[in-house]
Design a protein around this nucleic acid. Sequence first.
DNA 1: TCAGTTTATGAGTATATATTCACATTTTAT
DNA 2: ATAAAATGTGAATATATACTCATAAACTGA
Lengths: 203, 203
Amino acid sequence: MQNALTPRKAPRQARAQATHDAILEAAAQIIGAGGLSAFNTNAVAQRAGVSIGSLYQYYGNKDALMVALIHRQQKRQLMSVAQAVASVEDADLATKIRRIVRAAMQHHHDNALLASAIDHEEARLPMDAELTGYLDQGGEMVRGLLARHAAEIGDIDIDRAVRTLPALVRAATDSWANRNPPMLGVAEDEAVRAVLGYLRGLP
Amino acid sequence: MQNALTPRKAPRQARAQATHDAILEAAAQIIGAGGLSAFNTNAVAQRAGVSIGSLYQYYGNKDALMVALIHRQQKRQLMSVAQAVASVEDADLATKIRRIVRAAMQHHHDNALLASAIDHEEARLPMDAELTGYLDQGGEMVRGLLARHAAEIGDIDIDRAVRTLPALVRAATDSWANRNPPMLGVAEDEAVRAVLGYLRGLP
DNA sequence: TCAGTTTATGAGTATATATTCACATTTTAT
DNA sequence: ATAAAATGTGAATATATACTCATAAACTGA
């Protein structure tokens, strides 16, 4: 089933794969440097060092390129957080939260403009199976975490927490990490405080 | 001091005021219905029922119109929350928080696309004295609230709380109120839980 | 009444940019 | 070696839209 937002064709040769990747990377760089308003297909092709025609060989239109970029970022974000979770297997809850928050925040802050642009575009573009999959995997991670620390956590609706928790971290990031100068330490502290407070629940 | 983002001229006659207002209202409606991508000056003028020339009589460029719209929304948001605060003068902390959250959320949800667009544009446009003023007033409200309930609140850095708290509410709103169908009740519960947990602080 | 001022008009201009397509080049398979 | 398939090119087209300007209409105060 081929619609306008799925990739037009898959690369079959190595150089095609390189072109394909270069286009995505160029798009990320352009949005990261100039925001959504700098994001145009001619500029992306130029920065990727390929012709505009090649871009449209792989992405049927601009939105398809944006969707591919969103997939790339979500995948990286998920892997980065999964690694953080794995690296603190046996720590206490507060430590785990802090590490996870730090990983999520770092990833976000490395590409502040890109992250903000993606937040905005995600709302406009249709959610596909791949994105749903990433969301589900993230949900499973949170679920596992909460299950292992049920004792330290108040009455909680896990389905709600799975959605609310990432939003709390993003809120702290937007408020504190994307400033001039960035206050990453404060952002981390505030996110941890909000998350732990939320988990502990009402008295 | 007249720069490109300040209104080009102030309306002096009643009909000019009406034109001025109609343009702002049309801009709000267009973004509210179609998002930022639908926001163009010709469409705004048409919906306002005025000519494109009139629009540029009052707003030197598109960004100036956006800035004026941001001012209008921030002012309304502040007034709506201030009213909520005033209406629960003597209630306990949890009740106050719930009412304030509800007011902020309602305002946000009435214009979900507009609110999201403004969040995005605020980051790009320069912060002026008027916006700083609204922020300060909001800060004062939070400060007063926290002072009156110091006993129920853990160790807290008020300057941080003033920035983090509104972000937490917005996070819950984005996650739950802007859905299909909107889950306003859940959004409110989640925001209250996060805010109270944050205020209570680390154990 | 009327001159000066304010307000309104909208066709027209300038520019940006998404997308196409006819063609060239490179790679693969036989 | 060579045909077929895959990949790459970029000038050209189509369209959207920010913004201008010459002109007209409405209002004001005398």
